[in-house]
Simulated assay, not measured.
Amino acid sequence: MILGKCPYCDGSVIARKFETQGKKIKLYTCENAHKQYDESEAFVFTAESTCTFRVYSNAFLKWNKRSFSQYEMKKLLQDGQTTIRLHGRKGTGEYFKYVIPDKEYGVSILWEEDVPKEGEEELIS
């Protein structure tokens, strides 16, 4: 399934399902980003790869977000950013943050930016 245009090249970003360590996850990847195992069993980009955009759906598991959805990925590709809901360590308390594409990690959370709450307007100073 094509989700949108890659933020780094004109390729299409596609969603692929696979299973690792008994868990089903999705990989959102540019059609121009190809990886394979090399002789040392490391998963590396091939010589034919012209892009490196790849995001795993469990990228935010550390912040108690089980999955980065296809809808969120589509929004990220369309708008250049998206808002995600994260949870505190014990699963209590939720907060929202912006996510943007990142060359090295696929996506990054903008920790310094606060997402205005529903109905809250920005104050003009």
Results as ranks from 00 to 15, higher is better:
residue 30 C to F: 06
residue 31 E to D: 09
residue 97 K to F: 00
residue 35 K to I: 05
residue 65 K to W: 02
residue 62 K to G: 11
residue 42 A to V: 07
residue 60 F to H: 01
residue 55 V to C: 05
residue 106 G to A: 05
residue 96 F to S: 14
residue 39 E to C: 09
residue 81 Q to C: 06
residue 105 Y to T: 15
residue 39 E to W: 10
residue 81 Q to G: 04
residue 79 D to L: 09
residue 78 Q to E: 09
residue 100 I to G: 03
residue 58 N to C: 03
residue 66 R to S: 12
residue 74 K to C: 15
residue 30 C to G: 02
residue 105 Y to R: 10
residue 61 L to K: 12
residue 38 D to R: 00
residue 67 S to L: 06
residue 99 V to E: 01
residue 60 F to M: 04
residue 37 Y to I: 00
residue 48 E to T: 09
residue 59 A to Q: 05
residue 35 K to H: 08
residue 83 T to S: 14
residue 68 F to T: 02
residue 48 E to G: 13
residue 86 L to T: 04
residue 88 G to T: 08
residue 43 F to Q: 07
residue 103 K to D: 02
residue 58 N to F: 01
residue 53 F to M: 05
residue 65 K to G: 03
residue 101 P to L: 08
residue 97 K to V: 07
residue 73 M to N: 03
residue 108 S to Y: 05
residue 75 K to Y: 00
residue 51 C to I: 03
residue 103 K to W: 00
residue 37 Y to N: 10
residue 92 T to D: 12
residue 117 K to D: 01
residue 38 D to K: 00
residue 58 N to Y: 02
residue 43 F to W: 00
residue 71 Y to E: 15
residue 31 E to V: 13
residue 56 Y to C: 15
residue 93 G to Y: 08
residue 77 L to P: 03
residue 40 S to C: 07
residue 32 N to Y: 01
residue 76 L to T: 00
residue 36 Q to S: 12
residue 72 E to L: 03
residue 109 I to P: 00
residue 82 T to P: 01
residue 45 F to W: 05
residue 100 I to L: 14
residue 68 F to Q: 04
residue 57 S to A: 13
residue 115 V to P: 02
residue 61 L to C: 06
residue 46 T to D: 13
residue 113 E to I: 10
residue 109 I to L: 14
residue 42 A to Y: 00
residue 71 Y to S: 15
residue 80 G to P: 03
residue 65 K to F: 01
residue 61 L to D: 09
residue 84 I to D: 03
residue 81 Q to T: 01
residue 76 L to K: 02
residue 41 E to M: 09
residue 118 E to D: 15
residue 111 W to F: 09
residue 50 T to M: 04
